[in-house]
Structures are given as C-alpha cells and as structure tokens.
Design a protein around this nucleic acid. Sequence first.
DNA 1: AGACGCCTTTGATTTTGATCAAGTCGCCGA
DNA 2: TCGGCGACTTGATCAAAATCAAAGGCGTCT
Lengths: 245, 245
Amino acid sequence: MQIVNEHRRKDIHNSDIPTVCVACEARHGGVCGTLTPDQLLDLSRHSTRRSIEPGREVVGQGETTDSYANIISGVVKLSKVLADGRQQIVGLQFAPDFMGRPFTRESALTAEAAVDTDICCFPRTVIERLVSEAPGLEHRLHEQALKELDEARDWMLTLGRKTAQEKVASFLYIIATHIDPEQGAAKEFDLPLSRSDIADYLGLTIETVSRQITKLRKDNVIRIENSRHVTVPSLDRLMDVAGID
Amino acid sequence: MQIVNEHRRKDIHNSDIPTVCVACEARHGGVCGTLTPDQLLDLSRHSTRRSIEPGREVVGQGETTDSYANIISGVVKLSKVLADGRQQIVGLQFAPDFMGRPFTRESALTAEAAVDTDICCFPRTVIERLVSEAPGLEHRLHEQALKELDEARDWMLTLGRKTAQEKVASFLYIIATHIDPEQGAAKEFDLPLSRSDIADYLGLTIETVSRQITKLRKDNVIRIENSRHVTVPSLDRLMDVAGID
DNA sequence: AGACGCCTTTGATTTTGATCAAGTCGCCGA
DNA sequence: TCGGCGACTTGATCAAAATCAAAGGCGTCT
C-alpha cells in the first residue's frame, strides 16, 4: 500500500488562508469551507494520502474503522456479504464523496476500490474533535448521510421492483450521470465495474447482466467497445428503458 | 384528520424543568435531552398531536413537507412507486423514531400509517431554528439518518440476494425484534402489515408471501392465528431460516 | 508466437417466483 | 341468518432469471 504524506509547510505558514488540504491538495468534499483556517491546518497535518488499486479492500466488514477518508479520484464499492458468500453492493462512492462511519467503531460493510482510487485519510479522533468544535462539519457529514440514504432508497426500488433489463439500464444511467452530470448531451464513459460487480450491485448473475447489455446494444440504446467503454446516444432513451420518470 | 393540541401551562410554568413535550407527553425520540428547557418549551408550543388511521397518507411522494414528526405509537411505511404503479416500501418507522427530511422541501417518498398511529408534528421552521441554536439536536438527527441508512443497506442485501423464504423470515425477524427487543424469549406479536404491504416490502407478490408464510408454519418455524397474530417459538431458528448470521 | 488465465458472451436447461384463476375465511351490514 | 366484500390461501401454468456448460476475446508472461 502506497502512502504519500507530504505536508507543505510553505503553504501553511505564509499569509494566505488555506482552503485546501495540504496533504492532497483537494477540498475534501466541501468540508474545507466549514472549517476555520486553523482547523483546516489541524486536519491537513493529520491527513494521509493513499493510492488503492482495484480490488484492494479499504475496510473489511466487521473490522474496526479508525479513519475517515475523502475520495480524491476513483470509485469505491460498499458491499455486504451473506455467510454463504452471496454478495450485494449497497453503495458506490465517487469523488469527492466522504467515506466513513461517524460515531461507531464497527464497520458493517466492506469498502473496496473498483478502479484505481486515491483517497485522503484522517484519523477518526481528529474528525470527532473537529466535529465537536465546528458545528458546520457535523452538518456537512449529516448531509452526506442523507444523500446516501436517498440513494440507498432509490436503489431499493430498483432491486425490489425492476426487471433485469430495467436494472441494467438504471445502473448505466447512474454511471453516465455521475461521470458527466450535464444534461442532454450524448454520454461516453468507461464502466468502473466488472460484469461481476454489476451483477452484485443489481442482485443478478453475471450471465443475466451480460445478456441484458447485449440486448441494449442490439436495441441501439447503447454502444460498447472493449466491453467497458460505453456510449449512450440518448439519455432520455436510456431513462425510458430504465423506468425512470 | 383528528388534531389534538393542548398546551399544559401548569407543566411549563412551575419550577420543575420540562423534559417531555407538553403537547403529547412524549420524549420525542431522545431529542428532549438535547434541548434546553426554554428550547423544549418552544418546541412544545408549536407541536401538534395527530392520530392517523391505517392507510392514511401522511406525506405524498413529491409533495412539500412542512413538518417533522415524532412517532408516539404505531408504524409508518415509507414507500416509492414507479410510473406504472409498481411499489416498494423502502423503510418502516416505529415509535419513537423521528420522521422528516431535514434540509429539503421535497419529499421523495410517501409516508403512510400501517396501523393506527399517533404522531406529534413540528413545523420545519421551528426545527430548523432549533438546529441552528442547539448543535446537539443536529447530532441527534444525524444519528437517526445513520440508523436509517444502516437499515436501508441491510435491507438491500435482503432484496438483492435472498430467496423468497429468507425474505419472509427476515421480515418476521425485524418485526419480532422491534416489538420486543429482549433476546432469547419466544416472541408473540401482531403483524403491522397486510400481505400486500409485506409483498411491497420484500419485492415479492402477495401469493408468494402467503405461500412462504404457510411453509414456515408447516415447518414449525412460526405459528399463526387470524392471519395476523404470529408466535415465534425460537428466534434462533427464524434467524437461521432468514440467513442472518 | 504460443499458451495460459481471466473476463465476457452465448446456448441449453432448470428453477423460482409471477401470473392467472378459483376457492376459503372472517367480518360487517342488511 | 344470509349475502357480500375484502383479505388471504391454494392450485395450475407460465415466464424470467438462475444455473450449467461451452466457447470466444484479450492481455500477459514466457
């Protein structure tokens, strides 16, 4: 595991106010704005940048989490497994999301990089101290939790009530709009997940995912190259197939 | 809709500190402890008690929510529907949960009483003012959001990866442990949901739910009277069938 | 280049749960 | 007491997705 942790004293000690983490030069998902310059400096001093290759586990289910992290780039899968190995991905986190589970030491999930991912970690003790000092930070974490809750509930509708075809289209829609949130235009992107991951996200098997992707291709809803690179000519068409109003 | 709103000045103006909402005599899911007596009085003055019969909608999907509520007794279903009418229950709220969606005016879901339910409502303006004054209240709301997020993700595993039998057993397990959280003992309770609601919660059809309940009965995992009253002789056995480790 | 391994696709068959279709049960009101 | 109605159950059949099985592509290592 590659650790990069360089604190640039020059940025900190000169007169301009830091608004960006000195360890990773990122804004930490909007948190920076909720902190005073001193608090940001405090946070930055304790932050550690890590690069994670696909498939590497960040936190295992049931392990103690002792850090929070901000995703600088990449995609992280959050998943749960049953005793017999059946697996369900319960959330995807994209930059610049926060990861971490406030106010509990046990992680109920496994977090794993889906593609090459850079994160910036902070010890929970530092975050919890800052939360007690800066109410704006708790508000920011609260908003993140509410966003994840909304996403989880949307996905429950997909898992419980949509057909395989609609599920796959819904997944492509999520990725397409995350990669490039602009409306209207044709979308082109690389899938951050393997067929196996997509199956675990959708509650399907690999074979069903593959067949449904083939069907979307044959129906000209999407184009595919190298099994990972996707073009969506019309997002409206995709939404229609996905059952999104 | 029945409105009960009686403010007992005697409780407020005598010397002892109020720790309980004067409108409904409840503790509002632990919120009371996060407020000063003055703030609690403020909240109580604006609170309104409502009784809701089963099936009545509290807030419709897409409607503006202008109040928060604390569930005094009963069960509330949170659900989402697709354009063609397919429905998914995305959460159940039991007393003394908080309901309401902080920091947004649009409700993405429908909230509906599953059984006779009493709630105590506060206007969002009051809650949001108190949040800005009392950081402990935001913390309390944050914890509620995290609890709902955990429950949603657990349920995603059920929806995506469990069989019909495991789903029904998982549902019974949730109800059993909510009604009576004590470990070990045999559980006996009335189902707060109809077969149709259970189906919408589990992503199944009524018929499948019915067949699986019949099977659990024949396998002596549960006993049933009047199709609503359930006895679970061994919670361990139920957990086993539900695939809960 | 060739061989191995992994991911993906495609095909044949089976299974699970959905759908269609009658019943049954309990409750309420005439 | 009898209908009638809604909620639930049960049975027969069907369809969607899982499973089993066999390729096909693509990158990498030798």
